[in-house]
Amino acid sequence: MKKITKIFMRLIMMAGIIVTVVACSSSKEIYTDITESKEVKFERSGAQLWGETCSRCHLVPSPAAYNDTDWSTIELHMRIRANISESDSNKIFEFLKSAN
């Protein structure tokens, strides 16, 4: 019985060591430092930009006010009228179309 317990304990220890090694291992062959260009970018979402950009002139419009087709027309009009960058404009109206 003592022998069985000894074998069982050794198996558990081996399993523990294997699990620890696998869990701490990396799929990368070598480690590289995070350079500045690889830092995580916290970009503003369409919903954030919708709240911040529209309210610069008027109250924030309800996404449900227009359908997708109308929003695409309004997108081009507002992008030029309010001089909004293309990337911000795309994010805002993608959000509006997804939320209407």
Partner: peptide, 15 residues
């Protein structure tokens, strides 16, 4: 002629 740019976290628009 008009347009807008993102400069890092800042924004710039011109006409």
């Amino acid at each position: 002629l008009r347009g807008a740019f993102d400069i890092g976290k800042s924004k710039l628009n011109y006409s």
